[in-house]
Design a protein around this nucleic acid. Sequence first.
DNA 1: TCATTTATGAAATAATTTTTCAATAAGCGC
DNA 2: GCGCTTATTGAAAAATTATTTCATAAATGA
Lengths: 156, 156
Amino acid sequence: MEMDWADNQIINTLQENARTSLDQLAHITGLSSATVQRRVKALRDSDVILREIAVIDPSKVGQRMSFVIMVELERERPDQIDIFVRRAMKDRQVQQCYYVTGEADFCLICTAKDMEDFEKLTHRLFFEDSNVRRFRTSVVMGRKKVGLGVFLDDER
Amino acid sequence: MEMDWADNQIINTLQENARTSLDQLAHITGLSSATVQRRVKALRDSDVILREIAVIDPSKVGQRMSFVIMVELERERPDQIDIFVRRAMKDRQVQQCYYVTGEADFCLICTAKDMEDFEKLTHRLFFEDSNVRRFRTSVVMGRKKVGLGVFLDDER
DNA sequence: TCATTTATGAAATAATTTTTCAATAAGCGC
DNA sequence: GCGCTTATTGAAAAATTATTTCATAAATGA
């Protein structure tokens, strides 16, 4: 999809606040609000904007802990990998699952109420899957930056 | 903040689609749209809903690569840690920065256009900071699940 | 150049959000 | 339980925001 400076501004702004009104975006870009609305629609239709979501504070809803988990599988056959991916993807406590190069096969970002809740998670994901060789857990002490932003060049 | 089943439904729904209208939320919860609007406002004001954002497809805006980087610092003094955190936080290509237990001190999730772009990132973040002992990079081959959702119990 | 397509802004329309207000429900002291 | 206060609720009005329409202007390309 063809994109210019105005689109970049729209994308950057909506990544910071998806509730920014078309009037505000019109002011930022110097376009009319009708044009901005068509630009936003095009960005949605072409899946540049994948979705618009509310970000919840996990600690405010009882999920007080976060974890980074590096997972090594026993066998790296595609079908074996797929079984693990499916299990991870459908688990609500797995926020992110990356298939990666290096020593580990996957990096997971997970949340849990407490350590007991985390232990249950490890059973669901790792002990019930005989193909998981080992996993290394890092407990998150500080969520210094948490986002999904890909911010674009502001230059005209 | 006191929260009931209707709030949970609102939270779960807005995490999937922040553009869900008050009428739709009213239908889901069985409340009036005026009440739902007040619930949503309360969730925003109390920072249960931290923000509402557009999620962009990185590959559609030229950021074709993602990386998981485990970072070890030389000295773990709070002021030294803070210097690194600040640098990581203000870098646009760092989507996430977790301060963690275990061998490494930090786990970063980063994006880059290509390997050259990534190399620049490592210089900015790691080589210019004499306090970084080492870092281990895992290149992301598959973004199997990417989100920030913390989904709540659906039971009444 | 001319024809065609595409993008634009102003205005009208539609949809959504926010406020107002009266009624009901929930807490609380006694 | 009774009376009092405070909270929460829904319907309707008001305000704001999003979308469509339509005529015009700019870009594209034979």
